[in-house]
Every structure is written in C-alpha cells, then in structure tokens.
Computed example of a mutant assay.
Amino acid sequence: MKLKLLYLSLAIFISLQASAADFDLVVAKDGTGDFTTVQEAINAVPDFRKVRTRILIKAGSYKEKVIIPATKTFLSLIGEDEAIITYDDYASKKNRYGEEVGTSGSSTLYIFAPDLFAENITFENSSGPVGQAVACFVAADRVHFKHCRFLGFQDTLYTNYDQSRQYYEACEIWGSIDFIFGASTCIFYKCHIHSLADGFITAPSTNEGEKYGYIFYDCRITAEKEVKDVYLSRPWRPYGKAVFIRCELGAHINPLGWDPWDKPNPAHTVFYAEYKNSGKGANTKHRAVFSRQLKNLDDYEIEKILAREDGWNPIQSKQ
C-alpha cells in the first residue's frame, strides 16, 4: 500500500513538473513561482523577442494595474482556474495631483504589444457602477483572448487602436453601458455577453472607410432578470459598425435593436446588421430603420476578415 502511494505521489509530481516545464515564467501569490505579481513577470521578459514567451498565472486574485508595453512582443498569459487580475480605478477618481484619471486611465490591464495571447484569465474592474471604469484597454494588433472573462459596468472593454485586430474566443463580457467600445476590428466567437443594467452593449468608433468593426458570431446575449431595455449598439463615432450573426438574443433587447445616439444621419454613416439571430430579442419587425438584415455571409468569413496583408489566423496558430 505504501509503495502504491509512493508511485502515485511520484506520478503527480512528474505531472506537475511536466506542466510547469511548458512555461517560461510562473506567477504565484504564495511565492511558489518565479514572481508574485503579473507585472514583475512581464517586466522580466526580454524586449522584442522573436519567439513566444509563455507565462503561467497561478490561481489567485492579483490586485494590480498591469501594463504590457509595446516591447513585450509574443506573450502568452495562461491562467489557472480562478486567476483574476483586478483593480478599482474609475474615470472620476483623482490621482496624486488631484486630477481625474479619465476613462483611459481607469483600466486594470493595458495591452500595447502585438501578438498577445491570453487564456483562462479574468480581467476585472471592481469599482462598481461609478461611471466609466475600464477592465481591459487593448491598443495592439493581433490580440487573441480565449476563455477569458471581462468584468465591469460602464466601458468594460476598450478596443482602442483603430488598426487593431482582436479575436475573442469563448469569452465572457459583463457590463452595463457601452461596455464594448472603440475603433478596432473585433471578432467575438461563441462568447457570452451579459448586461447588468439597461443600456447599450457596444459603442463602436469605427473609422470612415474601414470595412469591419464589431462582429459577433454564435454568441449568447443575456442579462440580469431585472434588465428590460438594452440596445445592441449605438455609434460612438458616425461610422460605427456592428454585426450580430446567429446570436441568441434575450428578451431584454429593445425591439428597435439599435440606437442612433446623437448622429444626425445614421442611415448614411453607420453599418448595423443582423443575420439569422434567434431568441426572444431577435424579432426584426420593429428594428431601427437605419439597420439592415444580411441576406448572406459573403465577406464575413472570420479568417478573411482577420487576415489582412500579413495573413494573421489566430484559429490555426499555436499559442
């Protein structure tokens, strides 16, 4: 019996060692890794590496503002279950000089480096319903999130960079007002989008002439029980683009679906469209007149949208 237990313990030890060997750096709050904070691990990565650096973030709540500068290329951040990066800044909060930090200054995580991959991590702004309070600020190209959670209220996810391509795979995004906003081209594939209060899911600021903005494929759009009046989008800038494809829309979606905000002629500037959505909020009979229903998915293949000139394909790439 003792020999059997010894073999079992040895097998577990070998398994753990093999798992740790898959990573270049390990972050652990309890001191069992290479670093106790996420920022320390990122700082330790050599600048402009041509190969991928894999960082394991062990289970725990890491209260810190994390910045991934443009020099930290090809990072992979992999979380154990319950790996949370959290902070509680918000737009009207004062810095040490008595100045408001603003929306951009409120974020928990900042991504400026291209080719980032993050998996199984929760990014949270814990300040609550206090106005703009960003959980994740993405100002980089070729960014891929998989099985990640983005938690906040107003302005949860800021897709800041207009030349950025971002791919969200099986992620969860929670918020209330404009909680996915910005100028980037973003694909949300099989994600869960959850409204905590009446408001607007997206607020794209797509540049004039840009072919794509936000595209949601096969997503589940839900809300808290008391939430009854949510719009799919309103345009932060006149040429905002958002498309919902084969999504399950809850009863909380306003029959109009889309809000023009203060844009004087949305029919000539915005591109808001749907294709074969389902659920109680998918009835298109009363949709806003400036929105449209796609007849087919020509030009809406995920790989083609993200490829551009460099052929980026996060679906096939090894992270």
Rank of each mutant, 00 (worst) to 15 (best):
L116Y: 01
C171L: 01
A140Y: 04
S176D: 12
G182R: 02
V130N: 02
L196I: 12
P114G: 03
F153H: 11
S195F: 11
G131Y: 05
G128F: 09
Y168R: 02
D178S: 09
C186S: 14
I180H: 02
A118H: 03
F150N: 00
I180K: 00
A135G: 13
G131V: 15
R142A: 14
E124Y: 07
S126H: 13
C148R: 01
G131M: 05
I111Y: 11
G128M: 11
G182P: 09
D155K: 07
F112V: 06
A183I: 04
G175T: 01
A140T: 02
D115P: 03
V138Q: 01
G175L: 12
R142L: 11
C191T: 00
F117N: 01
I187E: 01
G152D: 10
E169V: 12
N120E: 08
P129N: 15
A133P: 02
P114Y: 10
Q163C: 05
V101E: 05
V143H: 04
Y189P: 04
N160P: 01
C136E: 05
S184K: 06
R142K: 15
D162V: 00
D162K: 00
Y158D: 03
L116Q: 01
Q154A: 08
S195H: 11
F181A: 03
N160V: 02
V101M: 00
A170I: 07
T122R: 10
D141Q: 15
L116E: 05
E124I: 10
L151C: 05
V143A: 05
H192G: 06
Y110W: 14
N125S: 02
L157H: 10
G102T: 10
V134C: 09
F145K: 01
H192Y: 05
F179P: 01
H144C: 12
C171W: 05
I121F: 02
E169Y: 09
T159S: 07
R165S: 14
Y189Q: 08
C136W: 00
V138Y: 04
Q132T: 13
Q166Y: 09
R142P: 09
G102E: 05
S184M: 01
F179E: 11
A183H: 03
S107P: 01
P129K: 14
S106K: 04
S195C: 14
G131R: 04
F112A: 08
A113Y: 07
A197W: 15
S104R: 13
A139G: 04
A140I: 02
L116D: 01
H192A: 07
L157Q: 07
D155E: 13
L109S: 09
R149Q: 13
G105S: 13
S104E: 13
C171K: 02
L109A: 12
Y189F: 14
F123G: 02
S164V: 03
Y161T: 00
C148W: 00
R165P: 03
S106R: 08
N120L: 10
T185I: 05
I193M: 13
S127P: 03
F153L: 06
F181W: 13
P114H: 10
I121G: 03
T122K: 06
R165I: 09
N125R: 07
G182H: 01
L157I: 15
D155W: 03
A140L: 04
W174H: 14
F179S: 11
R142N: 15
A118Q: 11
A183R: 00
A140H: 08
A197H: 14
S164Q: 09
S176L: 09
W174L: 13
N160Y: 04
L196N: 09
T159C: 14
S106I: 04
T185G: 09
C186M: 15
L151D: 09
P114T: 04
E172W: 12
